[in-house]
Structures are given as C-alpha cells and as structure tokens.
C-alpha cells in the first residue's frame, strides 16, 4: 500500500475523472489546496448541517449519501464511487452539507479546501467556468438518478 500521506497529490488530481483534461495550471492551483483524506468504513465524511470546509474527490472505496430521519432507519439514497466527487452545495453561496456522507468502505479521497477553491475561482473566471461545468454535470447525473428512483421503476411488473 502507498502511504496515503505521501502520494503525489498533484498527479492524483490529474488522474481523477472529475479533473480530467483540465488546464495543468488550474491543477497546480488546486493541488495547493488539496490534501489526502482517509476514512474508515462506517465513519462520516460530513453530516447534514455541517459548515462546508471541503469537498471530496473519491479515489478509492464507496461513500453513501445518507438520509436520517427520526424513527426511521438511515437510508442510503446514492453511492458515490471512485472517479466522482461528493459535495457541491458549497459552490452555491457556501451552503452547508445537505445530507450525511458515510464511508461504506475504507475510503481514500482528495479533500479540496472549499474556501481556497472559491478564492481561486474569484481570481480566475476560467477556473470558475471549469468547476461550474464539471459540478453541473455531477448535479445533472444525480438529478437524473433521483428522478428515475422517484418513479419506483422496478415496483411494477416488467
């Protein structure tokens, strides 16, 4: 196993699907506000209502987006896998985390500092466009899935 603290984070960012084909200068900038983050299975990456400090590019393992309501068992409504990111509410007016995020396996992610990224976006419209487009794709995929899940597809006879 690689030492999680010493892996080349700049290289890892460049190899991550979310940042694929991004301008190397932007990657250099983002690498400066990134750190490795490891989470044991069953631990939380974030909880609903938490202030947004970082978002995660998943490198290994699965995280679950989980909804907890009193009197009901916690329910995972989506899993986020290696190559995808979790957390985007921060990008719209630094909103807090909307849902719990739980590590379903031993998870390694790249945690990107939200304040750093937003400041960098203020300095570079091009970087802001890049992040906006990429996050919008994530949101669109999550929304498509949520809609399909909403109709209880499989409940009826095929």
């Amino acid at each position: 196993m690689n030492d999680t603290r010493t892996g080349d984070i700049r290289q890892a960012l460049g190899e991550h699907d979310f940042f694929a084909a991004m301008d190397p200068r932007h990657l250099d900038t983002l690498a400066q506000m990134s750190r490795w983050s490891d989470h044991a299975a069953g631990s939380w990456l974030a909880c609903a209502g938490d202030a947004p400090d970082s978002f995660h590019a998943i490198v290994r393992g699965r995280v679950g987006i989980e909804i907890t309501a009193t009197g009901r068992a916690p329910l995972v409504v989506a899993t986020v896998h290696a190559g995808d990111v979790v957390g985007w509410s921060w990008f719209i007016g630094r909103q807090p985390w909307q849902f719990d995020v739980v590590a379903l396996d031993d998870v390694r992610s790249i945690a990107l500092d939200v304040n750093g990224v937003l400041d960098a976006c203020d300095r570079s419209d091009d970087l802001r466009d890049e992040i906006t487009t990429r996050l919008l794709r994530v949101v669109a995929d999550r929304l498509r899935s949520a809609r399909l899940q909403l109709v209880d597809l499989y409940g009826r006879a095929r």
């Binding site: 069953g42 699965r62 329910l75 995972v76 409504v77 995929d141 899935s145 899940q149």
Partner: peptide
C-alpha cells in the same frame, strides 16, 4: 434505489453503473 449502509453494492440507477463502467 435505496439501502441501509450495510448494503455492499451500489445505490443509484443501473444507468449510473453503466455510465461509470468507463
């Protein structure tokens, strides 16, 4: 479509899985 955290597969649609195949 939904599961407890004990579920060791994915949560989401079959489309998500296909889109992740890469």
């Amino acid at each position: 479509d939904a599961a407890s955290w004990r579920w060791d597969g994915a949560v989401g649609t079959a489309t998500d899985v296909v889109a992740r195949l890469g």
